[in-house]
Every structure is written in C-alpha cells, then in structure tokens.
Design a binder for these strands. Structure first.
Lengths: 355, 355
DNA sequence: CGCGATTGCACAATCGATTGAGCAAAGCAG
DNA sequence: CTGCTTTGCTCAATCGATTGTGCAATCGCG
C-alpha cells in the first residue's frame, strides 16, 4: 500500500493544505519520483515524456504547488541559503552592502539571509552557528569583532566563507584598500580645509578599534599624509573610541574640553562615529562647528550636504560583493587578500552608480 | 539491522562531518529518539533519566553537535524563520526597521530573514513565494507595491502575516499615524521657514505614489495644514514622482525650470526622494538652496545637519515591530489598523532612544 | 520475426530530525 | 507473592523531497 494517504482516495483534498509531490502524483496518476523530476527541472535528464511533463506542470500550476525547500535541502544537502553578517543595518556602508548582496544573491537563485550582530562576539558566534544549523551554503562575514573565532566555526562545519573588509588569517578576504583610501581622504581633507594651514596643525582621527585591521590601515594612511604635510599626528590626536556613537560623543566632548574647542580637521572612521559627532554638535551653539572640515571613511549621501564641508571615502559595495562571490565561484579558499578600490566623494557631491 | 551506518561500528567517525543524533546515539549507546529528546529540551517530558541526559549533552558538546534545522523544520512543520519584506536597505527608515526586527526576532529565538524587493511587484511575489517555500512561520510586509497580491499569496499558504506601514484590506496592519505626522511636520515646516510668509505661498509636496496609503494620508495632512494657514495647495504643488531618486531629481528640476527657481518650503515624502533632491542641489550653484526649508517624512540623522533647516518625522521602528509581533502573538488576524505615533525631529537635533 | 537498445516510468532508500505508541524493569501497595 | 503504576527507554512512522536502480514497453535493425 501507499506509504502516504493524507486524503484517502485520489480525488479528495484540494485547497486544504499546500500540495506536495505526493498529492500531485495521486491526482496525475504518475509516481512521486516522476513528479519530482518534472518539477525540479530534471524531466529530460530523467527521460520523462514531454506530454507527461506538461500535464504535471499544468496540475502543479493549477493547485499552486510550491516545493518544500526544507525537504529539498535536507535531501540535497544544499539549502540555497547564503548568509551575510554585518555589524548593524543602521549604517549606510552596511546597508549598501546588504542591498548589493540581496540583489546579487537573488539574481543567482540564492536566498540571502542578512544578520546584524552589533559587533558582539558572543552574538556573532551564536548567529553563525544558527545559520550553520539552517545549512546555509556559504557565508559572507563583513562586520565582526572576532573574525578568527568565526572562521573556526565555519571551518569545523566545512562551510565556505569569505570575509569582507575584515581580513582573516585563515580564509580569503575581500577588503577595501583602506590605506590608499585613507591617504586620499586625508589629503583632500587637509588641503580643502577652509582655514589657514597653521590651524590645522593638529588634525584628529576619531573612531575604530586598535586591533581592527580596517582601523589600523586607515590610521596608517592618515599618519603617512600628516607626515608628508609636515603635520603632527601624535597619539593624542588619535582617539580610537570604537564604533559606538555614544562613546564617540563622549570622547570628542572630553577632547574639546581639554583643548578648549573643536579640532579644525577631523578624520572620522565610520558612519556611526560620525553620528556621535553630530550628537555632540547638536548640543553646541550653532556657530561652533562652521569652520570645521570633516573627512569620513564611509559614505552617506546626506552627509555630503552638511553645513560644513564633508569629504567621504565610499567603499565599493557592489565590487566587494562581486569579488566575494567570485571567490565562492572559484572554490579556492586559500587565505588571501583581494583589494577593492574605494572612491572619494567630494563635498556637495553624490555618488553615482553610472560613473 | 540499523537503518543508518555511515561509519560502520560505533567508534569510527569523529571530525569527519557534522554529527547527527544517529552518531550520538551510536557513541552513547542510547537510541536516536532519546538523543533527540535530550537535545531538544524534552528530556523531562519524555522521562529521560538525568544521568543519561547529562551524558548525552556532554557528548554533544564534545563532538560539536548542532541540530539540523531543516530536518527539524520538516518534521515539526515550523522552521523558526520569520520574514520581513522591505523596499530597499538603502533608506534609513527601512534599515531601522530591519534593525528592530533583527534584534527582536532573535530575542524570541526566531531567525529573521530580510528581503528587499525594490518595490517591484513581480519581485515581491517571487520573494514571498520563495520564503513560503522555505516554510517561514510568519511574514511582515513593510515596503511593497501590491499589498493585496501578497496577502492572497500568504493566505493561500495559510501564512500568518502582518503589514507594516502599508495597510491591506484583508490583514492586520500596523501603521504610522501618517496623517497626524504630516500635519505636525507641515506646521513646523511652514512656521519655521526662514523666509517671509508671502514667499511660502506655494509650498511643495514631493514624492510618493497616488494609490499608496501612506502617500494619501501624508498628503491629506499636508493639505489640511496648508488650508489652515491660508496657503494654496493646488494639484500642481503636489508632485507624486514615486520613490525613485532619479525621478525625484528630474521632477523637481522640471518644476524649477517652470517656476524659475526652487520652492521655499518643500515637504519630501521619503528619504530616497530626499536623495533625489540633493542630487539636484549638487548640480546647482552653492547659493541656490540656502533659504529653502525642508520637511521630510522619515528620518535620517545626517539630514538633521544640512546647510538648510530640515525637520523630519521619524517613524517609530521599534514600536512598529513590537506592535506587529503583538499581533502575531495574539493570533488574531482579522483585518484592522493599529496606529503608532511618529515623532518630530527638529533641525540640528538627533533622535534619542532614551527619550 | 527476433533481439538488443532505448524510452518512460515506478520503487524504495535516504536526508536528520520528532513523536505516538509500546514494552520491560523497577517500585509499591496489599 | 500478585497486580498496578511509574520510570526509562526503544521502535518505527513521518515530514517532502531526491536519486540510484530496475523493469516493462517500444523501437530499430537485419
């Protein structure tokens, strides 16, 4: 006898529940394997007569059949899910990355799953393990604190993974050319500052984490250009307050108190830190920040039109995702760095896809 | 004989692949059902001796066991996945919504799946069907063009779904109080405009879609306040150019050409439209937009510090998601509207979670 | 007409978990 | 010691697909 008989004879059922291949098999007189072959595009390969295939497809359409991808994934050992870890959605760099990833994953017939972990290491590990439990086929990791821990978890699960703007020692990483970007950004910032060079003698670098690769590279670039221009760039001009807006506000506020005013040129490392800076500005009298010049590593279109000049370095989200997917496609997971150039966005200028 | 024997006797295997409950069963001497009971927290319910449970848990930890959630989902008919449809990640309203949703879903032990469909109706339908195929347990729909089509697809699949800021006739919807928000925003915009009232006689409403509920409500509010203040609000002051930045740029540009200049007060419906406005500004001489006042429905922190005053109406992302989840929890899917108040953000002011 | 190749399909195992049912052993009351 | 309940576990079916294998029926060729 048949193993399944949710609705008895061959005619019952209908709009009750989502139909399965077994339902279609009963109603079409074919076997489940034939139905499966047809509906998973293997009709030719499995030598199904075109007429049979057409009949089954028609029935499937009529009953509104959709495959159960959990069942398919279980059997095939491939789910079609692909993950992306970001720090937060509320950061235009990450949300652009998400958008690139979403579009590209879907274009390839994958289902993107984007997870934000707020740079919390335990949360990162927990989320990655959850995604592994869901049997994702690959994982992109963009905004994480403990890259190596995640790499190990992925490796143990034999999960193909690529780091984005976050190099790992043990896996391929697609990174923005942070050093080069920071150099250009610093140069533009210092040259374009609307004040006498003498007042620029102590440009400030705000945001990021000491151990963080992106921060280190950007700081390198910043220091190099300061040196070139004969400006000081001592340790007290570098405030690595992390990526939290609150801490950025507090840190900058403390510095202002110490210095008796805002710096005239400010290199901001990441958009959330920039938000923290604005939070401080909100508490200051209007005139206090008219003659400041800001350079921000990462781009937000609204920041281009602030009341003071803001130059930004935009990471190429599309490029990063494209390169990362190429690594996946090539299937070569030897550790290496793949660099992508960022682009300078001048004040009062918007990024344009076309150019 | 045993049905499975991937690694022969009870001792082989190890770091080879991800262990399953069958591996743990062999190595612990218990049966798969016992292992399953222990590892899915049903040890007491299924009367497993604490000692046995501890032994199995220890072994699971040692071997790095993680459950296969596809298999679990298949059996249980509940996947643990919950979906959210948004228009785009590159819009602070939607990314705040994503962040709220991400945090809250994870807090409840769900796995959030966020999909952007760029307001494309076919893509929306395709994505919803895909999510249904993955057997998501519930779906929140925030940025869609054809709400009713999606509702039908969900209903046919018996998928619990809640609309967010996008009312459907046939399902519960959590919406921002758009009319009220628009009234307040318009009032502030017109009162705070840095120019004589006479120059305000033709405030402009830019962005949105005629059939769209949010647009209609916001426009209502805008018109009402214009009327109150004795200002004209005729149809040629209302430019429903959709939500695409490009079209917004072109539309506003055409208007400027016709009027011979920018309007003095501009109600912008949605952040992407605002980006389009900025794109136009980028092409204008610097002085062209110093005496404009802008009100934007939706909030982006950077927009608070532009070189002209920008008042914004921030939708309460956390509140929207909380209310939507409450609908799910209550299990009452009768069509209804649940309103959430938005909040006015004055120029040079940032939104603060605490207050 | 006879025989091998091809066509077209069905059977049944399998993926990894969950769960109702059943059963032996232990505990306990009388 | 008998009979009943409780304890602690195992069995086997099941979720919905995929896929290796097998077997008739048909076709082609001489």
């Amino acid at each position: 006898m048949a193993r399944r008989n949710r609705s008895g004879d061959g005619l019952a059922g209908g709009a009750g529940r989502k139909p399965t291949i077994y339902d279609l098999a009963r109603r079409s007189g074919a076997s489940p394997s034939t139905v499966s072959a047809v509906l998973s595009g293997k009709a030719t390969e499995r030598r199904i007569k075109p007429a049979t295939a057409l009949a089954i497809e028609a029935l499937a359409a009529e009953l509104g059949y959709v495959p159960n991808l959990q069942a398919r994934g279980l059997r095939r050992e491939r789910s079609g899910l692909v993950g992306l870890i970001i720090a937060t959605h509320e950061d235009r760099f990450f949300s652009s990355l998400s958008q690139s990833f979403d579009t590209r994953a879907r274009r390839r017939g994958h289902c993107p799953v984007i997870a934000s972990t707020l740079r919390n290491p335990e949360e990162e590990a927990r989320v990655v393990r959850t995604l592994i439990s869901y049997k994702i086929d690959a994982l992109f990791i963009a905004g994480a604190t403990d890259a190596e821990a995640l790499r190990e978890i992925c490796a143990a699960a034999r999960l193909p993974h690529v780091f984005i703007d976050l190099p790992s020692l043990g896996a391929p990483s697609v990174v923005t050319d942070n050093r080069l970007g920071a150099e250009r950004l610093t140069r533009t910032l210092l040259r374009g500052a609307p004040v006498a060079a003498s007042r620029l003698e102590r440009p400030l670098f705000l945001g990021g984490v000491a151990g963080d690769f992106a921060t280190v590279s950007r700081l390198d670039g910043f220091r190099k250009v300061c040196a070139e221009m004969g400006l000081a760039a001592s340790d007290d001009q570098v405030l690595l307050c992390g990526y939290d807006p609150r801490r950025a506000t507090a840190t900058l506020e403390a510095l202002c108190a110490r210095l008796g005013g805002l710096p005239k040129a400010l290199f901001i490392n990441s958009l959330p830190v920039f938000e923290g800076v604005l939070r401080l500005f909100a508490a200051l009298p209007d005139g206090a920040f008219t003659d400041i010049a800001i350079g921000c590593f990462d781009y937000d279109p609204f920041a281009a039109f602030l009341s003071f000049p803001v130059t930004m370095m935009r990471q190429d989200a599309d490029g990063l995702v494209d390169r990362a997917y190429e690594v996946l496609d090539a299937g070569d997971f030897t550790p290496r760095l793949i660099a992508v150039e960022p682009r300078l966005i001048e004040p009062r200028t918007l990024y344009d896809h076309a150019s």
